[in-house]
Amino acid sequence: MMTRMVGMKYAALCCCFLALAACSKKTQPNLDAGINGGPGVGQAAPGSKADFTTNVGDRVFFLQDQSTLTPEGTDTLTKQGGWLKKYAQVTVQVEGHADERGTREYNIALSARRATTTRNFLIGQGVAANRISSIAYGKERPVALCDAEQCYSQNRRSVTVITGGTN
């Protein structure tokens, strides 16, 4: 029954994938708004780094071993694209990251995939390609340090970091 068992596993995997995609909105806190709080909280000057991080959200999260954007991710990146079009002198670097539950070399490439997906989306939003550089950090720079999925899920991310053009 080997084949069938393998098959079941794939099916289970896909179910998880679907369930995650479907439920993430309800069960997970909205982490996409950046580390400094949700939208509307900040008093940051429009067009500043703080404005971007606080009111737009500087990061998006990925499912395990995935580089496909989640619906939340596309929302955040749509907002990022809008903001970057408004402040057209700003340049950014997209950082790709992976969680710690992978091997080093693979995670470098996986995090590059995430950075690329993010960068491509922003370009698709109309942000000039030469304003967006990208870098892959693999699993070398986690932000959440517990040994549980709640942390790993925060570490599987791409972060849009402003590198110039703000006051």
Partner: peptide
């Protein structure tokens, strides 16, 4: 890394 940034 591949040119399109998706693979290696």
């Amino acid at each position: 890394e591949s040119e399109d940034g998706r693979n290696a």
